[in-house]
Amino acid sequence: MADSASRFGFVEFAETWNGRLAMLGFVIGLGTELLTGQGILSQLGLG
């Protein structure tokens, strides 16, 4: 049971997945920007 508790917080497992998801989000945002011709902020209505 202690194994599942170590997957939360600033542990290597959580930080690895955080980095992977951040890279995925960046690639999706860049792809969307290239397909639509609008920046991310303008797509959200902020720019």
Rank of each mutant, 00 (worst) to 15 (best):
F8V: 10
G39V: 08
A5D: 11
G39W: 03
F8Y: 15
G31R: 04
L21I: 14
T32C: 03
G31K: 10
L44D: 02
G31W: 05
L44Q: 05
L34M: 09
A22Q: 10
N18C: 10
T36S: 07
T36D: 00
L34R: 10
V11T: 15
I40G: 02
D3A: 15
T36H: 01
V27D: 04
A14C: 07
L41Y: 09
F10G: 13
E33L: 04
F13Q: 07
T16F: 08
V11D: 11
G25I: 01
I28M: 07
L30N: 01
G47N: 12
G9T: 08
S42D: 12
I28W: 00
L44H: 04
G39S: 14
V27G: 03
L44P: 02
M1Y: 13
A2N: 05
L30S: 14
I40H: 01
V11L: 10
L21C: 01
L41G: 07
E33F: 05
G31I: 08
T16L: 04
L35S: 01
L30F: 03
F13M: 07
A14L: 01
A14G: 07
L21R: 15
V27M: 06
L35R: 06
L41I: 05
V27N: 04
R20N: 09
A5C: 11
M1G: 15
W17P: 04
G45H: 02
G19F: 06
R20E: 12
V11Q: 06
L46S: 00
Q43V: 05
F10N: 13
D3K: 13
N18F: 05
G29E: 03
A5Y: 05
A14R: 13
S42R: 14
R7P: 00
S4K: 15
E15N: 04
F8R: 06
W17D: 01
E33P: 04
E33M: 15
E15K: 11
S6R: 09
G45V: 09
D3I: 14
G25S: 08
G25N: 08
L34W: 00
G9R: 04
L35T: 01
F8P: 00
Q38Y: 09
L24A: 13
L46Y: 09
G47Q: 12
M23L: 13
E15C: 09
V27W: 00
L35N: 02
L34G: 10
G29R: 08
D3L: 14
E15D: 02
